[in-house]
Write a protein that binds this DNA or RNA. Structure first.
Lengths: 72, 72
DNA sequence: GCGTTTTTTATCGTTTTACGATAATTATTT
DNA sequence: AAATAATTATCGTAAAACGATAAAAAACGC
């Protein structure tokens, strides 16, 4: 079974925004955003996801990806 | 503020799969899948999202979309 | 190197909410 | 009309986000 991976890091580099700044603009704690950024979460609220997309001006697919595992 | 919308319906038509069938293959109740399909949820677990992507053979962006509201 | 700032990790508590089970209602199909 | 599929409603449980705080680690500037 594949898994969902968060690619927040990539977009943050592209938008040249720090974790602290993004957290403040998104409206969540930097601690929690760090957890999201480093794939330490197993679910996400749409309100949070929407806020991130809003600030980063991107689509969901730029942040969330389905990574199917290689079947050996 | 925009919002996240689920476009499960579109992919189900494309894959020609019924709600009951998809629910069984994904491994969640048809009741809950119906709620997901009709945007009655405000968050989603990655395990569920991954299973859906797996069965429908699609990416997250095909199912979840960020819809920014038109600022009048 | 040394201090400063940023980021990550850890722990704990609260709140949100998915998800299941069940039943009832409403399409949809035959 | 009957059967099937899908939606909605209610209730309960479990999962997990998210916040607060503190501590550790990493990145940065001097």
């Amino acid at each position: 079974m594949g898994k969902i991976v968060l690619r927040l890091d990539r977009m943050m580099v592209e938008r040249k925004i720090s974790l602290g700044d993004l957290a403040e603009k998104v409206g969540i704690s930097n601690v929690n955003l760090s957890r999201i950024k480093n794939n330490k979460v197993t679910a996400i609220r749409f309100s949070t996801l929407a806020a991130i997309c809003e600030i980063l001006e991107c689509d969901v697919g730029d942040i969330l990806e389905y990574e199917k595992d290689d079947k050996s």
